[in-house]
Design a protein around this nucleic acid. Structure first.
Lengths: 262, 262
DNA sequence: CCTACCGATCGGTAGG
DNA sequence: CCTACCGATCGGTAGG
């Protein structure tokens, strides 16, 4: 059984789809006017096609629309919560009807799951790249936390902490929790390394990991992108408070090990 | 408009009602056999009664049962989430029917709200007493965080962070957020005092406050009372990691102000 | 034989 | 404190 506490997030790049999601689907509706031809092309595209470039273009159109569904869903989940968000409202936002959503996603549960997995994959990629790169363990941890916090202020990232994994189905929960466990292992190794290097003081890596990233998971509850502090000031400040604490150095220096070389 | 992020929790003392909540209501059911009389007595009890000691006994019985409803509801909310918990299931747990719940609470929203407010009041009381007592600001903050974390591992405390305040009604949300704001002001003053004393380093009191207590709010997502570390070991460890950070002292000492006397 | 949908409605269940 | 229900709306799916 994987850990329940998660500290896995994923940044979502600003999509080129435009903020007015309805445009996407209004266009689609017009294109669908000649159903047979349009339909034919799509069919070829979604299966392996021996023909030239046109099918690929159509396939990407499906992907673009699917992405628009995920994006709008993430924003709605953030606003209303998972249970509070209805597929009818999501459909309204997208200027389509509810059954159309089911053309792009298999269920509401899966919709959330797809969002979560996408974010998790992105953060995992960043974590692996960062760990493999240069710097002390502390510097790497800081970079990961900052990136993680950035995710947590996006609609996609919010979905990670918005809904307990228990609320997704059994199969999907495992998919999510496997990635959480993978991320945790990376972070545990990083904390161990920091301890060996002397760049960190870690009494317990599990508690430290959950303590630090738990605070980042909670960020979406209070940090607004348009708040008093802009995200690029708020995030490093928040991360550094977590890394350094608020206790004055003198208050704890005596009983702290300076460094231990391996 | 009050802050959305909250760091307000409340400890719930172990109630004497016993863990087998059904006992409470099985007894009640027998008493209810003559519905009119029982109902009448209850009715008298809940309003101001000019009579002797009997009504008081009834009143306390009503309160005990009401408390049992809140307690079972808190546990169920923790297990299923607010939306995921149905009042029928709650009734089954208590060996009563759904309408009976409405005898003790006015609505599902209000049920959650009553739990939240009760916890908030308890933590606020503790915070005020601690602030008024002896010790440095850092010591006081630590005591508050530990007590707060204890709450966060209880069923009642979990309800504070389980559901966004948006999901309660407008009127109730204000009741909750007013207390959050009150708690925040106490914490801000404590952080300011720590800064003046030199016992703390606080670049921004709002970020520090949310950062520290956000991590405690998240605790209920991963810390289990029966986990690897018992709560009395886990909680101080977690709090100290937040207060002192994980960065080795040498890594940040240079640019840190030692103390500033007022 | 496919796609991209639509209008209408399914069985269940929520809070009250 | 129960039986018997209500208005509404949920996620999901039918045929065309």
């Amino acid at each position: 059984m994987a850990h329940r506490g998660n500290h896995t997030g994923l940044h979502v790049e600003i999509r080129s789809i435009s903020n007015d999601r309805s445009v996407q689907f209004r266009a689609a509706r017009v294109e669908a006017m000649p159903p047979c031809l349009y339909g034919k092309a799509m069919s070829i595209a979604t299966t392996e096609s021996p023909w030239g470039s046109t099918p690929r273009k159509h396939r990407s159109k499906f992907q673009l629309k699917r992405d628009a569904v995920l994006e709008a869903a993430a924003a709605l989940f953030r606003q209303r919560g998972y249970e509070g968000a209805s597929l009818n409202e999501l459909a309204d936002i997208l200027n389509i009807t509810k059954p159309t959503i089911y053309y792009y996603v298999e269920s509401k549960d899966r919709l959330l799951l797809d969002i979560k997995i996408q974010v998790q994959e992105q953060i995992l990629t960043f974590m692996k790249a960062t760990v493999a790169g240069p710097g002390t363990a502390l510097e790497k941890l800081r970079a990961i936390m900052i990136r993680y916090a950035e995710f947590m202020m996006s609609d996609y990232g919010t979905c990670l902490s918005l809904i307990a994994n228990r609320e997704i189905g059994e199969k999907g929960r495992i998919e999510v929790e496997t990635r959480i466990e993978e991320a945790n292992q990376i972070l545990y190794r990083l904390l161990d390394q920091g301890k060996r290097e002397g760049s960190m003081v870690v009494p317990d890596r599990v508690v430290a990991c959950h303590g630090l990233f738990g605070s980042l998971n909670w960020m979406s509850q209070w940090a607004k992108p348009d708040g008093r502090l802009p995200p690029d000031k708020l995030i490093p400040m928040h991360v550094d408070i977590l890394l350094s604490g608020v206790a004055a150095p003198t208050a704890r220096a005596p009983d702290k090990p300076k460094r231990r070389r391996s």
